[in-house]
Design a protein around this nucleic acid. Structure first.
Lengths: 256, 256
DNA sequence: TTCCTGCAATATGTCGGAGTAATTGGAGAA
DNA sequence: TTCTCCAATTACTCCGACATATTGCAGGAA
């Protein structure tokens, strides 16, 4: 998924997408992947609107200074994610938004790479507020001893490092992932992991905007205790509180 | 799982992925799309297991009787959906299941193309049972007059045609889509639409397995009435009943 | 022996050009 | 005006060559 680590140098957002393509290409990232990344961000950021055509294969590939092969492979990636559609004689057009695979990890990453759309962030939090408490409920019913051990360890790590550090945020992810794993539901795991990764990206904003407004540990402990006790309703409610808090913090940090 | 190396001499109707590629290619479907479709189904059906390598670009492309370009574009599609990963010198390997974008519409389609995995179907229904009632709750709070009109029309069409006909099923989809649209949440819309499309695919089994075990219209009406009345809790509960019923029908039809 | 360094083999990645197929839009006829 | 057909444009496919990166082995040092 690779949520980004975008190259700050490409923020020169002139009229043309052209040139600078190779500058985006990080180590280990293939050329067509870089092109897809660039075009995906350009579409998600609104630089290209639905209905716009990406002027001809040859012209565009030449403008980006890459071969048609690399350009076409990038387009296949975008097509696979429902962002564009190519037809002979018509060119490749940006599809209407409702065709986009908004829950695709890469698409989410592109959406949050630039200035994320406020409404979309709210939608995601709303979905999270639906899914995560339900996940906690299932986890409370299905967790085993091993699940609880992992959660406990993650909680301890969170206490040690706090959410201000990378290690602390990693522990936070581990905790939530352990809950998802305890649901024994692959679809739920994939969904929550995608949303969580994208939304946690906004946590960086939150941390940057102001000091931690509240100690999140007690809320996490409450979730853990409910899951450990097998209290389904309690786990769902405690997790609901957690998501609600995250929403408030993010909203205030983004000026909502 | 050893599908990788095949003796090129046996060109009969072996279980190999090779040949027949062009036969799959329907009108309007591009060659690389057909390849991706074929390989995607082969992976989702377990023909290739996670960790298996798709033996060399050149060899595989030749086996499929397509050019390397077409094969590579297909691989990019699968890569974009998290099914495989290609590295120089190492080949393209099937990724572990937790990396797959299970909620991608195409991936869902491939998963349900053959014999869908029972556990996965249950996971999806569980997720549906979480998401759809929540969607109905939001719809009850946010619907406008236009939304209600569309739902009403769809309901009338369902009554006329019944779920045994294509027109009836289309009306059913319209009804549920109208509810999703009324939530004003794009992420929720995309998610529920994907799951619904995949799960409704199993409806075909259901219809084939036995006659409609129960008239679904009254349950739909109950959902509509609650949404129209702005009764959030009632809408969620009524929708929960609807999903539960669909689960029971599908489970019994699949030999659960 | 064990570990590290460097070289070479191999498969993926990228390139550019040639040829095919399909859709579109207009010319021409009814 | 409407329909049919043709031709131009564009994406699609194929091919052969080169670039690049990773792997694994060979050889030397500790």
């Amino acid at each position: 998924m690779d949520m980004g680590q975008e190259d700050p140098s490409l923020h020169g957002d002139q009229a043309g997408i052209g040139d600078g393509a190779k500058a985006v290409r990080g180590p280990g990232r293939r050329l067509h992947g870089a092109i897809a990344h660039k075009l995906g961000m350009a579409i998600l950021s609104g630089h290209y609107a639905p209905g716009d055509v990406l002027s001809g294969e040859v012209a565009f590939a030449e403008e980006l200074d890459v071969s048609r092969s690399a350009y076409r492979e990038a387009i296949q990636v975008l097509t696979a994610k429902g962002l564009v559609e190519s037809r002979p004689k018509a060119g490749t057009r940006v599809l209407p938004r409702h065709r986009w695979n908004l829950l695709d990890p890469d698409v989410l990453g592109w959406a949050f790479a630039g200035e994320p759309d406020i409404q979309f962030v709210r939608d995601l939090f709303e979905l999270r507020a639906i899914v995560e408490p339900a996940a906690a409920r299932l986890a409370a019913q299905r967790r085993d001893r091993e699940d609880l051990r992992i959660m406990k360890d993650a909680l301890a790590a969170m206490r040690r490092h706090t959410l201000a550090t990378d290690a602390g945020r990693a522990a936070d992810r581990d905790f939530h992932n352990a809950i998802l794993h305890a649901t024994r539901n692959d679809a739920l795991m994939v969904l929550a992991a995608s949303i969580g990764a994208a939304v946690n990206w906004t946590t960086q904003y939150k941390q940057r905007a102001r000091a931690l407004p509240r100690n999140p540990i007690p809320d996490h402990v409450r979730v853990y205790d409910a899951i450990a006790a097998g209290d389904a309703a309690g786990a769902a409610e405690a997790m609901g509180v957690l998501v609600e808090l995250a929403l408030e913090d993010t909203a205030s940090a983004m000026g909502g």
